[in-house]
C-alpha cells in the first residue's frame, strides 16, 4: 500500500449512452492501491456500466481509463484481464459441465503466459496445487470433483470469485458478491470472501446493495444515480448524504 502515489485505476470523464438512456456521464473515479471501494446505486444507476467499461466489455463514448498510468480505454476484455483487472459476476459465469477444480484450472491456465505447458496436463506445473489452494481459501475444496451443475448457488458464487483471483489481479472487481445470499448469511459470506481475497488482491471495487455490508467492508463509497456520481467519500459521509438517502438507500440508512 505504502509508497504508491499513483492510483491503480484512474477513470476520467467517462460517458456512455444507449440511445436516449444515459448510462454514464462525467464519471471520474480514482482508486488508490489497497483501497476497498464500494459502488452503490439503484438498478440502472450505472454501476455495472462502469464495471463493464473498466473491464472492456463496453467502450466508453468519451473519457479515458488508466491502469497504473497506462491507458486501457477500449481494449478487449482479455487484454485488460492480462494487464491485471479481473472481475467476478453477479450471475456466476462458469462452465457448468466442468468440475469446480477444472474451472479453476482453466482460470489458472488462462493466467499463465502461453507456452509449452499449455499443451501439457492441466494439472501439471503446479497448476493443481494452486487450484486446490484457491478452492481451499473459499472453503469449496470438498466440492472440487463435482460438476458445477451439481453445486449450490452460493458455492458457484464463491467459485466465480476464486476464478477471478487466479491471476492475482492488480484490481479486483466484484459485482454484487453477496447477491442471492439470504440476509442473515450476508455477513458470514462477505467475511469469507474478504478473508479469501486478502493476500491475493488488495485493491478491490465491489458493487453492493446491502447498506450494512457497505458500512462494514468499504473504505470508501461512491453513489451513482442515473449515470452520474452523486456522492463520493467515507461510508459515513456518503450514507448520510440527503441525495443518497433519497435516491439510493431509501429510508434504510
Amino acid at each position: 500500500m505504502a509508497g504508491d502515489t499513483r492510483p491503480v485505476l484512474s477513470a476520467r470523464g467517462l460517458a456512455k449512452s444507449f440511445g436516449a438512456v444515459v448510462a454514464a456521464a462525467e464519471v471520474t473515479i480514482e482508486v488508490p492501491a489497497g483501497e476497498k471501494l464500494c459502488l452503490i446505486g439503484s438498478n440502472g444507476a450505472g454501476k455495472t456500466t462502469f464495471v463493464n467499461m473498466v473491464t472492456g466489455y463496453l467502450t466508453p463514448d468519451a473519457g479515458t481509463i488508466e491502469l497504473d498510468g497506462e491507458t486501457i480505454t477500449g481494449l478487449a476484455p482479455r487484454t485488460i484481464a492480462r494487464k491485471g483487472i479481473c472481475r467476478s459476476f453477479q450471475i456466476p459465469q462458469l462452465c457448468i459441465e466442468l468440475t469446480a477444480e477444472e474451472n479453476m484450472l482453466v482460470a489458472i491456465a488462462a493466467a499463465e503466459p502461453r507456452g509449452l505447458s499449455f499443451w501439457a496436463d492441466p494439472a501439471a506445473g503446479g497448476r493443481d496445487a494452486r487450484a486446490r489452494e484457491l478452492l481451499d481459501r473459499f472453503g469449496i475444496a470438498a466440492m472440487a470433483d463435482r460438476p458445477v451443475s451439481e453445486m449450490p448457488g452460493g458455492m458457484r458464487k464463491l467459485l466465480d470469485i476464486a476464478m477471478a483471483l487466479a491471476r492475482r489481479p492488480r484490481l479486483l472487481l466484484l459485482d454484487e458478491p453477496t447477491s442471492g445470499v439470504s440476509a442473515e448469511e450476508k455477513f458470514p459470506a462477505m467475511d469469507r470472501v474478504m478473508e479469501a481475497v486478502s493476500g491475493q488482491a488488495s485493491t478491490i471495487v465491489f458493487v453492493e446493495h446491502d447498506m450494512d455490508i457497505v458500512r462494514g467492508y468499504a473504505d470508501r463509497v461512491i453513489a451513482f444515480y442515473s449515470g452520474r456520481v452523486i456522492s463520493d467519500g467515507t461510508p459515513d459521509h456518503v450514507l448520510s448524504d440527503a441525495e443518497v438517502k433519497r435516491y439510493v438507500s431509501g429510508g434504510a440508512a
Partner: peptide
C-alpha cells in the same frame, strides 16, 4: 491437456474465458 480443457471451457462459457484473459 490444458488446451483441451480450455477448448471445453470455451464450449461451456466462451465469454468467461475471454474475461480470464484467453
Amino acid at each position: 491437456s490444458a488446451r483441451g480443457l480450455m477448448t471445453r471451457a470455451i464450449h461451456g462459457n466462451g465469454l468467461r474465458v475471454e474475461y480470464l484473459g484467453t
